[in-house]
């Protein structure tokens, strides 16, 4: 029981150091966002909310923020529509090659997104979708689909098939079993997977960098572009606004699903 119950002093030390390492960059960004200086320095010479106000009223940040929200929602909903039937089949209809198919649906996870972005750039041009919004959405669906499949498969595998069998035995048709039994069981998983997918899309840089244009530019891309040419607290301020959105989403996720489950399904 020793390892499990009582962390030693060495372990406590290590956990403190690693906590600082993992959290410091974000904390520093938050502090810089409230700097009153017109340049980046740490610690800031004084504090004010002027950068926050400036960023919130700057369309060159707010438009991309709105674009990111719309793109994240479109990609997540479309990916959920594809992932749900596939996950149901993988878990319940143990058909030949189900395992291989699951791995295939998860495979975009191990592809560097920049490579995917370049490949999509060539491909979308060839099929006449070059520089279109649809192309950008499809790119993000590829990126987020695995997260939905993983979450739904993980939750659905943990449910008892006898509940659905009972419904069948009592005379329910497949479609009504799905609607009244399976879907309610899976609602938290679809919601959590969708939320996770939204966050991944909201954060994605490479595909958005290559496939978006001036009118569809996303928030991470606009921050990246801004940071390439400027180094001032505006970047920190918009980052903090983005963080607030992510943390709110995380709190909702935790309420419906539990963050603990994320560690169980990272494979």
């Amino acid at each position: 029981m020793k390892i499990r119950s009582r962390p030693g002093s060495l372990m406590v030390c290590y956990l403190a150091v690693i906590s600082v390492f993992l959290l410091l960059p974000q904390l520093i960004v938050v502090v810089v966002a409230f700097s009153e200086a017109s340049f980046v320095s740490f610690p800031p010479p004084g504090y004010s909310t002027k950068w926050m106000v400036r960023v919130l009223s700057d369309p060159s940040f707010m438009k991309p923020l709105w674009n990111s929200v719309v793109l994240g929602l479109s990609a997540s909903i479309m990916a959920a529509a594809l992932a749900l039937p596939a996950s149901l089949a993988i878990v319940r209809h143990r058909f030949q090659g189900a395992r291989a198919l699951q791995n295939f649906l998860l495979s975009p996870l191990s592809m560097p997104t920049l490579i995917l972005a370049i490949a999509l750039l060539f491909f979308l041009n060839d099929i006449g979708l070059g520089n279109t919004y649809a192309g950008l959405v499809f790119g993000h669906v590829v990126v987020v689909l695995p997260y939905l499949v993983r979450t739904i498969v993980a939750v659905y595998s943990g449910t008892d098939p006898r509940i659905e069998e009972a419904a069948y035995t009592l005379g329910a048709k497949p479609l009504s079993t799905f609607w009244f039994i399976t879907l309610p069981m899976l609602r938290p998983a679809i919601f959590a997977g969708g939320m996770f997918a939204f966050l991944v899309s909201f954060d994605e840089v490479a595909v958005a960098l290559l496939l978006s244009n001036a009118s569809s530019i996303t928030l991470p891309v606009s921050i990246l572009t801004y940071l390439t040419y400027n180094y001032d607290p505006a970047v920190a301020a918009i980052s903090v606004i983005k963080m607030i959105i992510v943390v709110l989403a995380l709190l909702v996720l935790e309420r419906f699903y539990g963050l603990q489950n994320l560690t169980m399904q990272s494979r």
């Binding site: 690693i18 906590s19 993992l22 959290l23 410091l24 960059p25 974000q26 904390l27 520093i28 960004v29 810089v32 980046v40 740490f42 966050l199 954060d203 840089v205 991470p220 921050i223 990246l224 940071l227 180094y231 970047v235 920190a236 980052s239 983005k242 963080m243 992510v246 943390v247 995380l250 963050l259 603990q260 994320l262 560690t263």
Partner: peptide, 21 residues
Amino acid sequence: IFLVVTPLLINVVVRTFGWMV
């Protein structure tokens, strides 16, 4: 878990900016 998941959801651009500071 919060410690590990939070940075995961903060954009890589933002975290790199943090390290630049």
